[in-house]
Each structure stands twice: as structure tokens, then as C-alpha cells.
Design a protein around this nucleic acid. Structure first.
Length: 684
DNA sequence: TTTATTAAAGTTTTT
DNA sequence: CTTTAATAAA
């Protein structure tokens, strides 16, 4: 039985905000509402911060305030929505208090859980090199399980007369059930098939999927959270360790946390209850991922003694932009009443609304207008953004910006390393760290000529018997290990070569070389050849791999590199991997634009059915519509000075249904006095 | 195992 | 209409 011995520490109780030794003048640098939140005494606190009200500022000053009051950095846990925002916040704290943030834990729920699981891997039922499955990996594993259960599937299809759901559908049902802590059967009934009960079949497949993840020493995104919770329940001593360590917990974007994440906070704060959650119910846009903004609304009821702080001055947008935002969000029925006050002066122009003829013309409008704003008003490219509901809506804009030679970056749907070639390349690395990673082994095998799924599975069977795969001890020679696995004659030469390349990984002291060295061996020994042989656009892919290798240079641990690859989201990874020094216009989904701001914003495709998205509304009715409206609210409040609301009247590519587009109801809901309507003449 | 042919489905957001 | 998935043949 382990025992936690509590050191007597300085009471963290309400320190004097005006204490003489403080080097930051909190009262002068914050408005009274922010100041109250920043200097609040320990305990439960809910900070309701409207869009552009200095939410990040409040949080960073709160961290600085804790540090100023002798709280050690390692006693603070800062949970954020993206790793990028965690990094930015720490940079800002570091600016206030140079060199004082070392040892502070911060990041997304997923990355913090990952960190905990790696430290206590054995207790959590892993080895510390466990692999993280991204959505592609999960999907292919799930497809395999479904294939294994072909009989059951056929039976169910016969009984119900309907198609059995495919892997992505099952995964999303499963994920929703897990994240909301709802029984799978109920989720299946509510969200998939009201007519027939297929939940038993899905349950069976889900269980096998879970087992195969465990066999492969792998975790999907949801596992990172749930298995951390499992670890906490099965090992109270470990939980106590972290409860003791994290004396102060701060949570950003609380409106988008789901029940599992809520449980993690609750567990960690169990003994001391020093939790400050910050969020805005009007910006809750992740309900499809299990987030429920009832969480934020009900926080005070769930935790007696919660202090509530409201921060309602908007420092970002002009009054004209704000009045559009307020008019729209005001139509939602489920929300906290709030009054967002503009602090910025009017610039005497209203947001612009324009109907263009086609998506092409919409894109031309964006490009032309951007060029004008850049040339005539001197607005730099990186102060302009195009926002849209779905990635495909950026296609025409990309085309016309390219044509106009306007530099831009797209926050694509794909993570940087989710492209096939980078996944191929990392499969070798993953297998070294986690020899039980079946998917990586099969991927490697199938890159060899003449080897498909069947042969790969046979090879996997003998791989599993090797001491490396079963015990995890590095072999003294990879070439010997590979030689013991039979391959078809066609693949023999490449297989032998791979063995030699892997031998170069070993540093001769029972360990492996740093990631950068491994990757160079791999690239020169194996992958360069494969890439040239199997992709027609090999040169741009080569570019990616080289960029990736440069990115990996800064890592000393292969494991850390691989974790970061899985957990850093698209734009963050791209930021670090690609050069971002060039000044560019940003193209982004509204979701990914959360927390960002620009001087000039264009929202495109504001057509009924597109934004609000038809499916979102069909799926969850009024609730869905209100979430779409919150999304629109987020989009509008990204703009500081100029806002353009656009939609195409006619969509020639619409193959089903009516190509004529109606303006989004979000446009009709705005009082006409609040906007300038531009009528577009085409210059042809 | 790979490639060719045909049929079907697709139009959301992401750690 | 375009892209992807399933199926058949080489």
C-alpha cells in the first residue's frame, strides 16, 4: 500500500492582490471583471467570457498570478483545446514572468492523458511505447473486425432488411457513446436505427475492436481519455499522486468539453477543488463530439460554492460587427443571458452582404477584394481570412487566389502526416517503438512488391512469434530477425535490404539512434526507392518527407516524436513542419478558426442547407440549428474591422436537387439596417 | 495480387 | 457529376 505523505506548504489562500513584491500590476493591466477573475481565491470558479473579451488574457494572467503567489509551476495544470493555444499561452506567461513556466503541465486533454499513460503504462495495461491510432488507423482496424464477423453481419442484414453500418458509422456511434458515457444501445437507437435493434451486433464488434487494440498495444483517441480514467480508478495511489501534484487546474474552452473530460477534471480536482474553468456557452460548437454546453451552464449547480465571473467587454470587433453577431445569437433560446459591450470605436462601415452568381464568382470577388484591401488600404495578407462551413467549399477560392498570385495557407482536413506517404514512412518507426503494432507491420509488408493483404497476414503471424514482438527486447540483429520470416521470391531482395537498414538503427549499446538518424537511414535505404516507384507525384511527396525529417530533428525521443505527430492537429503540425514566415491569407473552416481573429474576414457559402448545414439540422433539429447558429456567431466574431458575408445564387455542380441556392437563414435573420448589401455587376 | 470493370454513394465539423 | 467501393477477371 503506497502512502502519500503530505508536505506542509504555504497556504494558497487569498493572497493580497496588491502585494508589494508583485512585479505585475494586475489592476492596471486588466479590466475590473478580468481582474476579479484573475485574483480570485482558490476554489471552484467559472469564468464566462464572451467572444473577444480577453479570455486568453485572463487565463494567462491567472497563471502568472498563481506563479507570483509562490505556487510552483509543476503544481499547475493548464488544459486547453489545442496544443497550439497551450503553447501560445505559456509564451505569454513567459513574457510576463520570464523563465518561470518550466515544469508547468499544459496541453490538450489528450496530450496530458497520453503523458500520464506513458508514465504508468504497465499499470494502465500498455507498454510505454504504445501506438496511438489516428482516425484512419481506427477505421481500417474496424473494417477488419467487421470482415471477421461477416456471418453475423449477414444475419443481421437478413433480419432487418437494412445494410449493416460501415466502419466509420460504427466508430462514430462508439465514440459518441464513450465520450458522453451513454450506453451504446441507447446511442445506436437514438442516432442510427430507430426501427431495428442492431446494437447487439455492434456491441459484439465493438468488443472485438477493443480487444484487438489491446493486443496491438494501441490506443485510439478516446482510449487516451478513458484508459486514464480507468487507471485512476484501478490505482488510487496514482490518482492521489496527480491530485497532489496539480494543486491548481485551469481549463480553457470549457463549453466544448465532454462528460469524459469533465470526469477527468473532477477526479484530478477531487481533494482540493481548485478548478477554474473558462468558456462561452455561445461558442459551443462540438456537440457532435459529445460536448454539451449544459456542462458550462450547470457548473455552478454541480459544484456548490462556485464563484461565477462574467467578462462582457469585447475588445476585438467594431460595434457594427458586434451588432450582427448579437442579433444572430440572440435568436437562440438555450443560452445564458449576456450583454457583450463593444469597446472598439466605430469605423463607420457596416458588414457587407453580397450574393454572387456562382461559387466561381464568389471566389473571384474574394480574390479581387483582397487585392484591393491589400493594395489600397495596406492590409497585410495575414490580416485576412476566408471562413467556411466545410473544407470542400474552399476549392474555388484556392483556385482564384492562386490565379491572382495571393499567398495563402489552407488549414486542410488532413493532418500533415495523415497523407499516405508519411504514414508509410512512420510505420517503420512505430513498429520499432511498438513491435506489437500489427497495422504498421502489415503496412510495411504490403509496400514490398507482390505482397498483399494475404501474405502480409501470414508474415505477421511469424513476426509475432519473434522475441522482439513478444517481449519488446530489441534484437541484436534485425536482418536475422527478418530472415526468419518467409517472403515470396519477388519480395526477397527488398526484404533483405530492409533488414540491413533496420540494423543501422541499433546503436550497439542496446538502444537505438536518435530519430533523425533513423529517418535518414530509412529514407536512403528503403523509402526513397519505394516512393519513386509507387507515386506519380513523387517529387512533392519527397518534399513532404524531407520537411518531416527536418521537423523530427528537434526530437531526441522517437516516442515523443510519434506522440506529437498523432496529437498535434493539422494546422499546428503544419506550423511547425512548414515555414510560416511567409505572410499569407488564411483559409479555414469555422471550427478551426476558433480562438483566432483577423482584421478582415470573408464568410463564404452562406446558403441555406450549406450553412446551416442541412444534415446537422436534420439530425438534431432545433438543437442542431442552434449549434449552427453558434458556429455562425463564432465566424462573425473572428472579424475585427471588416466582414463580408457571401453566397452563390447558383451552383452548377449540384448534381442532385436544385442548383439554385437560397440565402442562409442566418443572413435573413440579420436586420437589414445592420448591413450593407452590395449588388454585384459582372464585368463581362 | 493486381488491375479492370461496374455499381453506388456522396454534401460537416476534429482530438 | 465525380469519387470511392465492391466485384470480376487476368
Amino acid at each position: 500500500m503506497s502512502r502519500i505523505y503530505q508536505l506542509k506548504r504555504q497556504p494558497a489562500g487569498a493572497p493580497d492582490p496588491a502585494s508589494a513584491h508583485a512585479s505585475i500590476d494586475f489592476a492596471a493591466e486588466l479590466n475590473p471583471q478580468q481582474f476579479a477573475a484573475v485574483t480570485s481565491p482558490p476554489g471552484k470558479a467559472l469564468v464566462l467570457a464572451g467572444a473577444g473579451s480577453g479570455k486568453t488574457r485572463t487565463l494567462t494572467y491567472r497563471v502568472a498570478y498563481l506563479l507570483e503567489n509562490a505556487i510552483a509551476p509543476h503544481n499547475i495544470l493548464l488544459l486547453t483545446f489545442t496544443n497550439k493555444s497551450a503553447r501560445e499561452m505559456l509564451e505569454r506567461v513567459d513574457h510576463l514572468l520570464p523563465g518561470r513556466t518550466a515544469g508547468l503541465w499544459s496541453g490538450t486533454f489528450h496530450s496530458v492523458c497520453n503523458r500520464i499513460l506513458r508514465r504508468h503504462a504497465a499499470a494502465a495495461g500498455f507498454t510505454s511505447g504504445f501506438s496511438i491510432l489516428d482516425s484512419d488507423d481506427s477505421k481500417s482496424l474496424m473494417s477488419k473486425v467487421i470482415k471477421d464477423n461477416a456471418e453475423t453481419v449477414k444475419q443481421i442484414e437478413r433480419a432487418t432488411g437494412e445494410k449493416f453500418p460501415k466502419a466509420p458509422v460504427i466508430l462514430s456511434l462508439l465514440s459518441f457513446a464513450v465520450n458522453t458515457r451513454t450506453p451504446l444501445a441507447k446511442v445506436v437507437r437514438d442516432r442510427f436505427s430507430p426501427g431495428h435493434d442492431v446494437s447487439e451486433g455492434i456491441r459484439k464488434i465493438a468488443d472485438q475492436y477493443d480487444q484487438r487494440k489491446r493486443d496491438a498495444n494501441s490506443a485510439d483517441f478516446d482510449d487516451l481519455l478513458t484508459r486514464t480514467l480507468d487507471l485512476f480508478s484501478s490505482h488510487p495511489g496514482i490518482l492521489a499522486e496527480y491530485q497532489f501534484q496539480f494543486q491548481f487546474i485551469l481549463v480553457d474552452e470549457y463549453q466544448d468539453t465532454n462528460p469524459v473530460q469533465g470526469e477527468i477534471i473532477e477526479k484530478l480536482a477531487g481533494t482540493h477543488g481548485n478548478v477554474m474553468v473558462v468558456g462561452d456557452d455561445a461558442q459551443s460548437i462540438y456537440s457532435w463530439r459529445g460536448a454539451d454546453f449544459a456542462n458550462i451552464i450547470g457548473f455552478p449547480e454541480r459544484h456548490s460554492g462556485t464563484q461565477v465571473f462574467k467578462i462582457e467587454t469585447n475588445y476585438r470587433s467594431t460595434p457594427e460587427i458586434l451588432s450582427v453577431a448579437n442579433a444572430s445569437i440572440g435568436l437562440n433560446t438555450r443560452q445564458f443571458a449576456k450583454a457583450l459591450q463593444p469597446a472598439c470605436a466605430s469605423l463607420q462601415h457596416k458588414p457587407v452582404m453580397a450574393a454572387l452568381y456562382t461559387p466561381e464568382e464568389q471566389a473571384m470577388f474574394v480574390a479581387q477584394r483582397m487585392q484591393e484591401l491589400h493594395d489600397e488600404e495596406g492590409i497585410p495578407w495575414n490580416e485576412m481570412a476566408v471562413l467556411y462551413r466545410a473544407h470542400f467549399q474552399s476549392m474555388e477560392v484556392q483556385l482564384h487566389l492562386t490565379r491572382a498570385a495571393i499567398p495563402f495557407v489552407v488549414t486542410s482536413g488532413l493532418r500533415f502526416f495523415e497523407s499516405a506517404h508519411l504514414k508509410d514512412f512512420t510505420a517503420y518507426l512505430r513498429l520499432i517503438v511498438n513491435p506489437r503494432d500489427d497495422a504498421s507491420f502489415e503496412r510495411i509488408a504490403q509496400m514490398l512488391p507482390g505482397i498483399g493483404a494475404g501474405t502480409a497476414a501470414k508474415m505477421l503471424a511469424s513476426w509475432r512469434l519473434s522475441p522482439f514482438a513478444s517481449s519488446g527486447t530489441l534484437p541484436t540483429s534485425f536482418s536475422d530477425l527478418l530472415a526468419s520470416i518467409k517472403v515470396p521470391a519477388r519480395a526477397q531482395a527488398d526484404w533483405t535490404q530492409l533488414g540491413f537498414t533496420l540494423d543501422e538503427f541499433l546503436d550497439g549499446n542496446g538502444g537505438i539512434h536518435p530519430p533523425a538518424t533513423l529517418m535518414r537511414s530509412l529514407w536512403e535505404g528503403v523509402y526513397q526507392k519505394h516512393l519513386k516507384a509507387s507515386f506519380d507525384n513523387a517529387s512533392s511527396r519527397t518534399e513532404d518527407v524531407l520537411q518531416f525529417m527536418a521537423f523530427a530533428d528537434r526530437y531526441e525521443s522517437l516516442q515523443d516524436l510519434l506522440s506529437d505527430l498523432s496529437l498535434l492537429s493539422g494546422p499546428e503540425a503544419a506550423d511547425s513542419a512548414k515555414s510560416k514566415d511567409r505572410e499569407s491569407v488564411v483559409l479555414s473552416t469555422v471550427h478551426q478558426a476558433k480562438g483566432l481573429e483577423w482584421k478582415v474576414v470573408f464568410i463564404v457559402w452562406l446558403a441555406q442547407g450549406m450553412f446551416p448545414n442541412l444534415r446537422a439540422v436534420e439530425e438534431s433539429g432545433d438543437l442542431g440549428l442552434e449549434e449552427e447558429r453558434r458556429l455562425f456567431y463564432v465566424a462573425v466574431t473572428r472579424a475585427r474591422e471588416q466582414l463580408h458575408l457571401l453566397y452563390p445564387r447558383f451552383w452548377p455542380k449540384s448534381y442532385a436537387g436544385d442548383p439554385w441556392q437560397q440565402p442562409s437563414q442566418f443572413l435573413s435573420e440579420i436586420p437589414s439596417t445592420a448591413i450593407d448589401e452590395w449588388r454585384i455587376g459582372s464585368g463581362f
